[in-house]
């Protein structure tokens, strides 16, 4: 009996503990891992986030007809792990504290960045984004920049030609 009264007393002293959510907003702490957002102006289209993303919520496709590379995020697959944010070289994708993602419109769950692709100087094939070329170039000494304008295949041919000249 004593235990019962004790429990009753304590429960009354605690009072109401439920929250009025969703009628009142709920605070989430600093560093909460919510919806990732891609910054259109910063993204280079390097694909690092796509490779890191465990559930394939991020994808990268090259649309050669339009000459653009598309980085696409589908929140329906996202697990809010933040790996994309870890690996992005320019802080273009970041997790926010937003977590109320339910929507009646499927399209609300997609984010897309389309970046114009650079064409290979030799074969003319689009091979990466202009922004990525610029980004890499800005980190390279001037004399090493020229091969950035070639696609990987032509670059290889080009450099092996150089190597064979050297040997010869």
């Amino acid at each position: 009996m004593r235990e019962r009264l004790g429990l009753l007393r304590r429960s009354i002293s605690v009072g109401i503990v439920t929250e009025k959510y969703p009628y009142k907003p709920i605070e989430v702490p600093e560093g909460f891992r919510g919806k990732p957002v891609i910054d259109q102006d910063k993204c280079l289209g390097c694909g690092a986030c796509v490779n890191a993303c465990p559930p394939n919520a991020l994808s990268m496709t090259d649309d050669l007809d339009r000459g653009v590379r598309v980085i696409k995020l589908f929140l329906g697959r996202c697990i809010f792990c933040g790996r994309c944010q870890d690996v992005c070289p320019v802080e273009a994708i970041k997790l926010t504290r937003e977590f109320e993602l339910a929507s009646i419109n499927h399209n609300d769950l997609y984010q897309e960045v389309a970046l114009v692709m650079a064409k290979c100087m030799v074969c003319g094939r689009p091979y990466t984004t202009i922004r990525l070329v610029e980004h890499v170039a800005s980190n390279l000494p001037r004399e090493q920049r020229s091969h950035l304008l070639l696609c990987p295949d032509c670059r290889e041919k080009h450099s092996s030609k150089k190597v064979s000249y050297a040997r010869w």
Binding site: P29, G31, F32, R33, I79, F80, C81, G82, L95
Partner: peptide, 8 residues
């Protein structure tokens, strides 16, 4: 960790 259940 940024999440109540999946610490990641």
């Amino acid at each position: 960790t940024g999440n109540r259940k999946t610490y990641g």
